[in-house]
Design a protein around this nucleic acid. Structure first.
Lengths: 270, 270
DNA sequence: AACATATGCCTCTTACAACGGACATACGCA
DNA sequence: TGCGTATGTCCGTTGTAAGAGGCATATGTT
């Protein structure tokens, strides 16, 4: 799904270089493999000469890298370092590692921290459970919001109209091919928000159940979720325990979300 | 050091928006804390109106984020995700995790993977050693190349002239205040390259010794280094063992560097 | 109160980046 | 051999984004 990246609204308009550059980065990220400049230009339906020039600039800056002698390029090392810097300054990411560990150990199930990335749901961090066959998913991969339990919580601060505008209509088509009624979805959003919890049998497969609890900022807005992914039989058997553990962790994590801009002093220490 | 970011060479020239945008990202990364648009404009000595506009575009794209109500911005979540995508596709990062673990366990010392980031040295990954008081450093922080053992290896593919052009003159001023003769440095580079190894007592402090071994790509070029950071007495006592272990790991890792573009299939697995 | 400084927002001009399209090369296939 | 497609490069045009500067507000200092 979503093979083409949105480029611009007004067709006659000339696109800004910056935006085109971001489109290139997004395309490579979604594609998950290197590509040649020409391929990229075609995929984005952007002028070739422009794409070539932008890629040259991005290569120069280290945001893209040449991956071979055939001209293929992919996301560059600089992005990795910028991502590190983001992470270092973002309390939530740091804090939650411990919570994910705790959840995974206590429940033996896979625990995840989930967030919005643009108008998609995505797993920001994951800790696999302590079982011989573990359930895992792709960290950082964009997924339609309505496919996920966390999705119900992550958009709960929006009005009905905002939600409908925010989520592309195509995203209400579930992996099964069936279409989820947006009104049903919104009802679930409201209910999840009120309950401070949402759980359902995962739509993307037929053997897991997902538990999601909101991590809220000062204003009470759900900025992320903590999730447990459990096989359905275990989920049924331990439902109340899992729910309680998850709610506890999420509430705890929420309280830690006050201080954002501490200078992150990770200096040399013997 | 290096408070001002390089903007452009020809003074009268109008800077490209893309480059200015990258300067903004770099500035925030180096600064390691949120800043207001005006501060950024002043710090980069870039026109305010331009910086405001660029920041708006970067916010829109998610590469920057508003961190509070006072207009402060910092690197955004999107960069984190782009960094994840980079990492997922970059064999070296994946492969080396195991090697760092192995090194740290076998030697009980801190092990690092180091690379160039632009014209600086930086620690890309780290695994702390198994000691009560561990030595660590900042992952992702740019450090002048001549300050580090790895630096000798990382520039060894360049000619003398290229090295002198590549490393800012200011970077030859060591943390002690003394200036390292560039010719001395280059001699060490050549020697390190020939030996496939470099070790010295760290210039940035007075209690550690650093061991560095090159990770080479197909062409024999040093694309990264594996390092051990040890207290000086331990380093002396176990010098040969540490060196052998490190060289072994680095050679091994080098051989794994052949296949770059495997599709990184981290799908759902029960 | 007068002043200096930091900040955000706006307008106008023009240098130049985005673009379209021509050209050249390489490859696979009939 | 000829044809279609994929690819990279170059150049002239023009729409527009980068830049300079002015206005307004807020805060702190004398």
């Amino acid at each position: 799904m979503q093979t083409k990246i949105k480029t611009n609204e007004t067709p006659g308009r000339r696109a800004r270089g910056l935006d085109r550059a971001f489109d290139i980065l997004d395309y490579l990220r979604e594609r998950k493999s290197p590509a040649r400049p020409n391929q990229i230009a075609v995929a984005l339906s952007a002028p070739r000469s422009t794409v070539y020039e932008l890629i040259a600039a991005l290569l120069e800056a280290g945001l893209l890298e040449q991956t071979d002698a055939e001209g293929n390029v992919f996301l560059g090392r600089k992005l990795y370092f910028l991502g590190l810097a983001y992470e270092a300054n973002f309390d939530l990411t740091r804090e939650c590692r411990a919570y994910l560990d705790r959840l995974a150990i206590e429940t033996r199930e896979t625990a995840q921290l989930c967030m919005l990335d643009g108008n998609k749901y995505t797993v920001a961090m994951m800790r696999e459970g302590a079982r011989p066959f573990r359930i895992s998913s792709n960290v950082g991969e964009p997924v339609p919001v309505p496919w996920t339990a966390s999705g119900r919580l992550l958009v709960s601060h929006m009005t009905d109209e905002e939600i409908l505008e925010f989520i592309p209509a195509a995203d209400f088509v579930l992996p099964t091919g069936a279409t989820l009624n947006p009104r049903t979805f919104i009802a679930e959003v409201r209910q999840a928000d009120k309950a401070g919890f949402f759980s359902f049998e995962t739509l993307a497969d037929n053997f897991t159940r997902c538990f999601a609890a909101p991590v809220r900022d000062h204003g009470g807005r759900c900025v992320a979720t903590l999730c447990l992914i459990a096989p359905r039989n275990d989920a049924q058997q331990y439902f109340e325990r899992y729910k309680a553990t998850l709610l506890d962790a999420a509430a705890d994590l929420s309280t830690k979300l006050t201080s954002r801009s501490l200078p992150s002093s990770r200096t040399i220490s013997l």
